[in-house]
Lab assay of single mutants.
Amino acid sequence: KVILLEDVKGLGKKGDVVEVKDGYARNFLIPQGLAVEATKGNLKEL
């Protein structure tokens, strides 16, 4: 699961917690600054 930092077409809006494949999160969303891993600490910051 990841928390979206920006609106991502076809996935969700900023602040949404979405389930995506590990590779998509690690190789695209997180490096592009579009999402962060949905850890307990990150979820509390919402």
Rank of each mutant, 00 (worst) to 15 (best):
K1W: 13
K1Y: 11
K1C: 09
V2L: 09
V2W: 15
V2E: 00
I3S: 03
I3G: 00
I3H: 04
I3V: 10
L4F: 02
L4Y: 00
L4D: 00
L5N: 03
E6F: 15
E6Q: 12
E6H: 13
D7E: 11
D7A: 10
D7G: 06
D7W: 10
D7S: 09
V8W: 04
V8L: 08
V8T: 03
V8R: 04
K9N: 11
K9D: 09
K9V: 12
K9F: 12
G10V: 03
G10W: 13
L11N: 00
L11H: 03
G12P: 00
G12N: 00
K13D: 05
K13F: 12
K13C: 10
K14H: 04
K14E: 04
K14D: 02
K14R: 13
G15E: 02
G15P: 00
D16L: 04
D16N: 07
D16K: 05
V17C: 06
V17F: 06
V18C: 06
E19H: 11
E19K: 10
E19R: 12
E19V: 12
E19Q: 10
E19N: 09
V20Q: 01
V20P: 03
V20K: 00
K21M: 13
D22H: 12
D22F: 14
D22C: 13
D22I: 12
G23N: 13
Y24T: 05
Y24H: 06
A25Q: 03
A25P: 02
A25L: 07
A25N: 03
A25D: 04
R26V: 06
R26L: 08
N27L: 14
N27M: 13
N27T: 12
N27A: 12
F28G: 02
L29V: 01
L29S: 01
I30D: 02
I30H: 02
I30W: 03
I30S: 02
I30F: 11
I30K: 03
P31M: 15
P31R: 15
P31H: 14
Q32K: 12
G33C: 07
G33A: 07
L34Q: 05
L34H: 04
A35F: 01
A35N: 00
A35K: 00
A35Q: 01
V36R: 09
V36S: 06
V36D: 04
E37D: 09
E37V: 11
E37T: 07
E37W: 15
A38V: 05
T39L: 07
T39S: 09
K40A: 15
G41P: 09
G41E: 15
G41L: 11
G41A: 13
N42D: 10
N42H: 08
L43R: 03
L43F: 06
L43Q: 04
K44T: 11
E45S: 08
E45Q: 10
L46Y: 09
L46P: 15
